[in-house]
Design a protein around this nucleic acid. Sequence first.
RNA 1: GGCUCAGUGGCAGAGUGGCUAUGCAGCGGAUUGCAAAUCCGUGAACGUCGGUUCGAUUCCGGCCUGAGCCUCCA
Length: 465
Amino acid sequence: MLNIYNDLSNAKEPFVPLTPEQVSMYVCGMTVYDYCHLGHARVMVVFDVVYRYLKYLGYRVNYIRNITDIDDKIIQRANANGEPFLQLTERFIQAMREDAAALAVLPPDAEPKATDHLPQIIAMVQRLIERGHAYVAANGDVYYRVRSFADYGKLSGKSIDDLESGARVEPGEAKQDPLDFALWKAAKPGEPFWESPWGQGRPGWHIECSAMSTQALGDTFDIHGGGADLTFPHHENEIAQSEGATGHPFVRYWMHNGFVRINDEKMSKSLGNFFTVREVLQRYRAEEVRYFILGSQYRSPLNYAEEHLDHARAALSRLYTALRGLPPVADQTPPASSSFTERFRAAMDDDFNTPEALAVLFDLVREINRAKAEQPQQAAALAAELRQLGGVLGILQADAEAYLRAADPGTTDGLSDSEIEALITQRNAARVAKDWAEADRIRDLFKQQGIVLEDASGGTGWRRQ
RNA sequence: GGCUCAGUGGCAGAGUGGCUAUGCAGCGGAUUGCAAAUCCGUGAACGUCGGUUCGAUUCCGGCCUGAGCCUCCA
């Protein structure tokens, strides 16, 4: 049975969806004013694996990952660029989709945008006003009255009184209480705006997620995810908004992934120490990045370092090497049950323990390599199993031979495949003549190009290192 | 200061009240013209001080160290 660490209770809990056989899941996606960095990549990959595993377990999953396409930063950036904000956001939405696709992240079932949900947002703000959870200030802003929501702080473990001491009001705000937060911001000159009962303005930061998730999944849904930095205030405020508006419990399981770090420090925009996905993809293959992310449990910190990407490269090389020469998955049915699959599932059932799941894959590799020579049928069946389980993690779906021969990004390799084949023929002639000096000369030549030759009984194979 | 989380072998990273994690690297062997890949074997760990226990890296408490949130951030 699947167990999920629920941040609401700070404990692993058995996962029982609201509706049998179905899972509703919402993940906070990007605010689109810049390229995805590795932190975004982690969110996308982690919840992609959650999505894939739930489907593997037989659930029908409705996975929503939103796009926040209106907020202060977007307006700021659009102004700085001197372009309409919709043009800016459209560009980065496109870039995000490219990055996600490169990382083999499955498209969610829907990707709602904030700007497409103004009626829902306005209706929810209105409802909050009606229910006494919000008020219209003199300046046209609408604020959430935090002290009207008794459960405020239940997700992040904060008490209202502790927060009160540190809270402060920005110039131009008209809050009754420093803790209150904006649901609706009156438009300043030159800002994009929508008409509302409170005049021209735009949504505050948190309300769009409440409006879109409720619209897509109902008042109460199963899983809500995002990066750990969203726990407070974003998700805390979502709870206050949604439960305040509907009167029903909002989310049943809250999941937050840990940060990507660099030199033991959080990778973040404000610190400026981030790498974008496309920067990293210039040097490493997307599958290597994905493996790197899955190499640690999703709640743990993930330290970025090139040596860790190199490690991922070596690990994938071993996995694909085992698959090499065995039939692709379509030709073989994996066994319905096996100890490997059981162990894999046990690992994933334990709050998506991907490092443990990967360890099972390596045990499978050893078994395949053992069986390869003497029991090819057995090896093929095990390989099919490896591919299937890899698929749950979104890896190992490439053709093994092609994967191992592919050049790494950023390398400008001089030798084409046909040149390589020609040199191998030349070297094999030398080998037949027992001209070892010539054979070794050619091998060294390959080695300088990062190409490894492998003499086997059936002929000489090659791959790139 | 409040609230979270963490501290495992050379590196990364799981896990467990007594029994091999796994990968990379190391060492020995098999295999190879030499290699590569692979297989077999092997050394090496649980921050610190107490407590519970027949027995703790694993449970409990203190301490030390690190990270994060409390302000925009995935």
